[in-house]
Amino acid sequence: MNSSKLKAKDFITVGIFTAILIVVEFLCGMLGYIHPYIVASYVVMIPLVGAIPMMLFYTKVEKFGMITIMSVLIAIIMFVLGMGYLGAPLIVAAGVIADLIAKSGKYKSFKKTILSYGVFCLWICANYFPVIVTADSYRTDLLDGGYSAEYCDDLFRAINEKTIAVLLILCFVFGCIGAVIGKKVVKKHFEKAGIV
């Protein structure tokens, strides 16, 4: 791997893992419609579950740009699925920073990988942006959209400009924990099988 340019194979790898990550996100997202507190708990669930594919992805990353492209793809798909464009800058920023951190460890250092994944997980918070930035209109939107007032109250109790800091930190922390667990799983299954 002397060339630092991305090849078709790398793009395909990015595509596959993005698809898996979106599926994970989507399945967790479905649960959120049961109760708003589950919406807030995305920051715990998605980093933990998503860590397994992501750690496998990190073993395949060797060049700058792959994590960045992934974040761009996620931003596009989030937009298409109706999550809005407000979070897009945060998603891409998290991706670029995560990429830089991983690059500084030459994509091999485990500590840097943990940090990088923690930062990458901040993209999940982008999903909360519409709730915070446009709180009032979002509330009326939800009510008009058929949600109950109870759901809205709970949602805004769980997610507002005060709790977003906590949510961001939680995201990062559980990203790091998830990375450790994910690495163990990858070691247990994939390195033994010789796939990595």
Binding site: L6, I12, G15, T18, G65, M70, L73, I77
Partner: peptide, 9 residues
């Protein structure tokens, strides 16, 4: 890069 990855997704 974006086109190929998006197609794969």
């Amino acid at each position: 890069g974006i086109a190929i990855s998006l197609a794969v997704v």
